[in-house]
Computed example of a mutant assay.
Amino acid sequence: VGLLFYLVYRKRIRFGALVVAAHVLVGVIIAVIAINGTNWDNAMEDLLYKDKVIFSYNSKYQHVTITERIMDPARPKIISLFINGRSQFASNDEKIYHSMLVAPVMNASARHDNILIIGGGDGLALREVLRWQPKSVDLIDIDKTIVDFFTLPYIENGKEINKPLLKLNQHSFSDPRVHTHFGDAFIKVDKLIREGRLYDSIIVDLPDPSHPDLNKLYSARFYAKLKTLLTGDGALVVQSTSPYHAKNTFLCIGKTVQYAGFMHVEQYHHNVPSFGEWGWTIATKNGLSARARIAQKDTLEIDDGWSTKGVILAAFEFNKHYFEHLDTIKVNRINNQAAYQYHLVDWEKQQGIYVIGK
């Protein structure tokens, strides 16, 4: 179109040669970007992470980045997963996080036949659950692309990109006892309720409530739905962000689970080097609290390579002033976005960009 316009009006255009040269230059720039754009984008992404980016892709719901770091040539590479720029795990210490997520709730549950996992699309919590030899595990995740990536070999340029990750989760998604369901967990659990499903343990392993869309999965209404799905002597655990870096969010999650009607709600914490101090919320709907149930055991039933009875019970201890302002913390509801708002402010303060009076 530009060329046709120039040919028709070239006699009326001043500095016509300059105009043509400018168009040619723009065309060259566009061509260079088209040829090199992907490589430049990858190089820019490498600058955002401390480690080398070995794979990156966009699913329908999120941006996934996988990095690797070589600390010692004689030891395995450290593989890390980021979703939307936020760290999800590092292979050198994910064992700590997933043991502390799964071991307390499984030890607090009377049986381990039927387990429900919300989130956990990397299959690592699932790996820990399968140690207990359940009859059936249902896992709900919104993103089939991620679950597929942690299930099947992904070949790029003749190389199996995700081989270390499949080894890490011990091919947990390939176990015939595992049944995956894809979609919004807030809606998907309604189907399970209609079907009359009951679960001995429920494990909620979701990203932090860092986006308004995630807030509903930390709401009292959602936890009430999960209470309906839990057996009378079962237990529920919820990933609850950092009790140190995001204290108000952590307290909000615990208070919201309590509001949903569970008889006993407790919170515990443990250090995960990649994350720092991290926390979880555990609840039972009848009988003893999770902590009391674990305390009654002589030894833990399963050796997962990290957790012990002493480690788990110690994790329930906080300093004596930690919960003093709990009465000022809001219950998270769908319409008040409390968990999301607390999380936003907590992490802004941690990053030094908090505005006084916000």
Score class of each variant (00 low, 15 high):
Asn36Thr: 12
Gly85Ile: 05
Ala17Ser: 07
Lys216Val: 15
Leu198Gly: 13
Ile142Arg: 00
Thr65Pro: 01
Pro209Val: 14
Ile253Gly: 02
Gly27Pro: 11
Lys135Arg: 10
Ile29Leu: 14
Tyr49Trp: 07
Thr256Gly: 07
Gln62Asn: 14
Ile155Lys: 07
Pro209Gln: 12
Arg221Met: 11
Asn286Phe: 10
Phe150Thr: 03
Val189Gln: 03
Val178Trp: 04
Gly276Cys: 09
Asp205Lys: 10
Leu47Gln: 15
Tyr9Ala: 10
Arg177Asp: 04
Gly261Thr: 08
Ile66His: 00
Gly254Ser: 03
Ser240Gln: 08
Val8Cys: 06
Asp304Leu: 01
Asn114Gly: 04
Asn157Thr: 09
Trp347Val: 01
Lys227Pro: 02
Arg194Glu: 14
Gly352Gln: 05
Ala220Thr: 15
Ile70Val: 15
Arg12Asn: 12
Asn107Asp: 10
Lys60Leu: 14
Leu168Met: 14
Glu45Gly: 02
His23Trp: 12
Lys320Ser: 14
Ala17Thr: 09
Pro76Cys: 04
Gln258Leu: 10
Ile35Gln: 11
Leu81Phe: 15
Leu344Arg: 09
Lys77Asp: 13
Pro273Met: 06
Arg333Met: 09
Thr231Tyr: 04
Ile117Thr: 11
Thr249Ser: 13
Tyr61Pro: 04
Gly158Cys: 06
His245Met: 11
Ala21Cys: 11
Ala339Glu: 04
Ile83Tyr: 10
Phe250His: 08
Ala314Asn: 14
Ser109Ile: 10
Val105Phe: 01
Trp347Asn: 02
His325Gln: 12
Phe82Asn: 02
Thr151Pro: 01
Arg194Lys: 13
Ile282Trp: 04
Arg291Pro: 03
Thr328Gly: 03
Trp347Leu: 09
Ser240Leu: 09
Ala31Leu: 13
Ile312Glu: 03
Glu317Ser: 13
Tyr57Pro: 06
Asp298Ser: 12
Trp280Gln: 04
Glu156Phe: 08
Met106Glu: 00
Arg291Cys: 06
Val105Ser: 01
Gly276Ala: 09
Ser109Asp: 07
Ile140Ala: 00
